[in-house]
Deep mutational scan, measured.
Amino acid sequence: GIDPFTGEAIAKFNFNGDTQVEMSFRKGERITLLRQVDENWYEGRIPGTSRQGIFPITYVDVIKRPL
């Protein structure tokens, strides 16, 4: 089901994660935001896939912030 505490964002740019914990994505992908890790990073996942990880806040347009 849908978790009411998650947020939502759209990727503004392609992001290629450097490490296992970073999640790569392509511009235009819809991302579920799980939490804000710190002032620069979100943790999120791509709905319908097993992809999950952290990524820079500046790479996405936030539609709804996670609670």
Results as ranks from 00 to 15, higher is better:
Lys12Asn: 07
Ile31Glu: 00
Gly7Tyr: 14
Ile31His: 00
Thr58Arg: 11
Thr49Asn: 03
Val60Glu: 00
Asp3Glu: 14
Ile10Gln: 05
Pro66Met: 06
Tyr42Cys: 07
Phe55Val: 08
Pro66Lys: 04
Asp18Ala: 15
Thr58Trp: 14
Leu34Arg: 03
Arg51Val: 04
Ile46Lys: 02
Asn14Cys: 08
Glu39Cys: 15
Phe5Arg: 10
Pro66Asp: 08
Val37Ile: 14
Leu34Val: 09
Gly44Ser: 00
Glu8Gly: 05
Asn40Lys: 11
Gln36Met: 10
Gly53Asp: 01
Glu43Pro: 00
Asn16Cys: 15
Pro47Cys: 08
Trp41Glu: 02
Ile10Ala: 03
Ile57Phe: 06
Ser24Glu: 04
Asp3Tyr: 12
Trp41Thr: 10
Ile31Asn: 00
Trp41Arg: 07
Thr49Leu: 03
Asp61Gln: 13
Arg45Cys: 14
Thr6Leu: 10
Thr49Phe: 03
Asp61Tyr: 15
Leu34Ala: 03
Lys64Cys: 14
Leu33Ser: 03
Glu29Tyr: 02
Gly28Arg: 03
Thr49Tyr: 03
Phe13Pro: 00
Asn14His: 10
Pro47Thr: 11
Ile46Asp: 00
Arg65Thr: 13
Ile31Pro: 00
Pro56Glu: 03
Asp18Arg: 15
Arg35Tyr: 08
Pro56Lys: 04
Ile46Gln: 01
Lys12Ile: 12
Met23Ile: 06
Asn16Arg: 11
Trp41Val: 05
Ile46Thr: 01
Arg45Gln: 09
Thr19Lys: 13
Pro56Cys: 04
Arg51Met: 04
Thr58Phe: 13
Arg65Leu: 15
Val60Asn: 00
Asp61Phe: 15
Arg30Val: 11
Gln36Leu: 10
Val60Met: 03
Gly48Asp: 08
Asp38Phe: 08
Pro47Ile: 09
Arg30Trp: 09
Phe13Tyr: 13
Pro4Gln: 14
Ile31Gly: 00
Asp38His: 08
Arg51Pro: 00
Asp3Thr: 11
Ile2Thr: 14
Ser50Cys: 13
Ser50Ile: 10
Glu43Cys: 14
Ala11Gln: 00
Leu33Gln: 03
Arg65Lys: 15
Arg35Pro: 01
Asn14Leu: 04
Val21Met: 14
Leu33Cys: 07
Ser50Phe: 10
Gln52Glu: 08
Lys12Trp: 04
Gly1Trp: 10
Leu67Ile: 15
Pro66Asn: 07
Met23Arg: 00
Leu67Gly: 15
Lys64Trp: 05
Glu39Asn: 10
Val37Lys: 05
Trp41Ile: 06
Asn14Met: 06
Pro56Ser: 02
Glu29Gln: 06
Ala11Tyr: 01
Lys27Tyr: 06
Glu8Asp: 09
Leu67His: 15
Arg26Pro: 02
Phe55Cys: 01
Arg35Met: 07
Gln20Cys: 15
Gln52Trp: 10
Gln52Thr: 09
Tyr59Phe: 11
Phe13Arg: 12
Tyr59Arg: 05
Arg26Ala: 11
Gly53Val: 01
Gly53Glu: 00
Arg30Gln: 08
Phe55Gly: 01
Ser24Met: 04
Glu39Phe: 09
Thr58Ala: 15
Leu33Asn: 04
Ile31Asp: 00
Gly53His: 01
Val21Lys: 14
Ile54Phe: 10
Met23Asp: 00
Ile46Ser: 01
Tyr59Lys: 07
Glu22Phe: 12
Glu8Ser: 11
Thr32Glu: 14
Gly53Pro: 00
Gly1His: 11
Thr6Trp: 14
Gly44Lys: 00
Ile31Trp: 01
Thr58Ile: 14
Ile31Phe: 01
Arg30Glu: 05
Val60Gly: 02
Phe5Cys: 15
Thr58Gln: 13
Ser24Leu: 02
